[in-house]
Computed example of a mutant assay.
Amino acid sequence: MITPGQCRAARALLELSQKELAESAGVSLRTLQGFEAGDRELQSLALSAIKRILEEKGIALIRQDDWIGVKLSLQK
């Protein structure tokens, strides 16, 4: 789905704060902070909401055999 590292990297590419992403995805700031720190698992609805917001902003989450990452589409 999405890892804490992918979430942090995606936010960095988009220049989004944790607060901005949390508000857009409808999750609490504390929840997002805990997820990105690796301190908590998120329910599937919260993960889906975060993933949806990032993808709407042009992020592609990449998961292949032995690596994961993110990329940002420059097409708008």
Results as ranks from 00 to 15, higher is better:
residue 4 P to V: 03
residue 6 Q to D: 13
residue 7 C to G: 10
residue 7 C to F: 03
residue 8 R to F: 00
residue 9 A to G: 08
residue 11 R to T: 03
residue 11 R to K: 12
residue 13 L to K: 14
residue 13 L to M: 14
residue 14 L to Y: 04
residue 14 L to I: 10
residue 15 E to N: 13
residue 16 L to K: 11
residue 18 Q to K: 11
residue 19 K to M: 02
residue 21 L to R: 05
residue 22 A to E: 00
residue 22 A to H: 00
residue 23 E to H: 11
residue 23 E to M: 06
residue 25 A to R: 05
residue 26 G to L: 03
residue 27 V to E: 00
residue 27 V to Q: 01
residue 30 R to Q: 12
residue 32 L to Q: 09
residue 32 L to I: 03
residue 32 L to R: 08
residue 35 F to A: 03
residue 38 G to T: 04
residue 39 D to N: 14
residue 40 R to D: 01
residue 41 E to F: 01
residue 41 E to R: 06
residue 43 Q to H: 08
residue 43 Q to V: 02
residue 43 Q to E: 07
residue 44 S to K: 13
residue 45 L to K: 12
residue 46 A to E: 12
residue 47 L to N: 10
residue 47 L to H: 10
residue 48 S to G: 11
residue 48 S to I: 01
residue 49 A to E: 05
residue 49 A to L: 02
residue 50 I to C: 06
residue 50 I to Q: 05
residue 50 I to V: 13
residue 50 I to D: 05
residue 51 K to P: 04
residue 51 K to N: 14
residue 51 K to S: 15
residue 51 K to R: 15
residue 52 R to V: 03
residue 52 R to I: 02
residue 52 R to D: 13
residue 53 I to E: 15
residue 53 I to N: 06
residue 54 L to A: 13
residue 55 E to S: 14
residue 55 E to H: 04
residue 56 E to H: 08
residue 57 K to Q: 12
residue 57 K to S: 04
residue 59 I to P: 13
residue 59 I to M: 09
residue 60 A to P: 01
residue 60 A to Y: 07
residue 61 L to K: 12
residue 63 R to V: 07
residue 63 R to K: 15
residue 63 R to F: 00
residue 66 D to P: 02
residue 67 W to F: 15
residue 67 W to A: 11
residue 68 I to R: 11
residue 68 I to S: 14
residue 69 G to Q: 03
residue 69 G to E: 12
residue 70 V to A: 15
residue 71 K to M: 10
residue 72 L to C: 05
residue 73 S to H: 08
residue 73 S to I: 07
residue 73 S to F: 03
residue 73 S to G: 12
residue 74 L to D: 11
residue 75 Q to F: 05
